[in-house]
Computed example of a mutant assay.
Amino acid sequence: MSGITIYSSAYCPFCIRAVRLLDSKQVPYQLISVDGKPAVRRVMAEKAGRTSVPQIWIGERHVGGCDELYALERAGKLDPLIAEYQ
């Protein structure tokens, strides 16, 4: 897997916040909606070990959800991680 992948839901405020952060960095990402797609959510849950959204991967690294993405940003670690896969 390369780049950034986000499993999300259209009505999830945490998903919206995560996408806004990535949009502010002007980086491409693949957005995979789980809305009305139990099979897609099941695949996400198997990969992430979690059923909540968003679930975010940068390259092969499972970052976690919105809180973890923002924690990386606050620690100054998000940009270098993104740069590895762009």
Rank of each mutant, 00 (worst) to 15 (best):
M1T: 11
G3N: 02
I4Q: 00
I4N: 00
I4G: 00
T5W: 01
T5G: 01
I6R: 00
Y7C: 03
Y7R: 01
S9R: 12
A10F: 11
Y11F: 15
C12T: 08
F14T: 04
C15L: 08
I16Q: 13
R17F: 05
A18Q: 05
R20M: 13
R20H: 14
L21K: 09
L21S: 06
L21N: 03
L22M: 09
D23E: 15
D23W: 04
K25Q: 14
Q26N: 15
Q26P: 00
Q26T: 13
V27H: 02
V27C: 05
P28C: 05
Q30R: 15
L31K: 07
L31Q: 06
S33G: 05
S33L: 14
S33P: 00
V34Q: 01
R41T: 03
R41D: 09
R42M: 11
R42P: 00
R42K: 14
M44S: 02
M44H: 00
M44A: 02
E46Q: 10
E46F: 01
K47W: 08
K47S: 09
A48K: 02
A48M: 04
A48H: 03
G49T: 09
R50K: 15
R50G: 06
S52E: 13
P54V: 06
P54R: 04
Q55V: 04
I56M: 05
I56V: 11
I56S: 01
I56R: 01
W57Q: 03
G59Y: 01
R61T: 14
R61E: 14
H62S: 08
H62L: 13
V63N: 06
G64Q: 05
G65V: 04
G65H: 04
D67Y: 10
E68S: 11
E68Q: 15
L69C: 05
Y70K: 03
Y70S: 04
A71F: 06
L72E: 04
E73W: 07
E73I: 07
R74Q: 14
A75R: 13
G76C: 13
K77C: 08
L78G: 08
D79N: 11
P80G: 10
P80K: 06
P80T: 08
L81S: 12
L81T: 12
L81Q: 14
A83F: 05
A83D: 13
A83E: 15
Y85A: 07
Y85H: 15
Y85N: 12
Q86F: 08
Q86W: 05
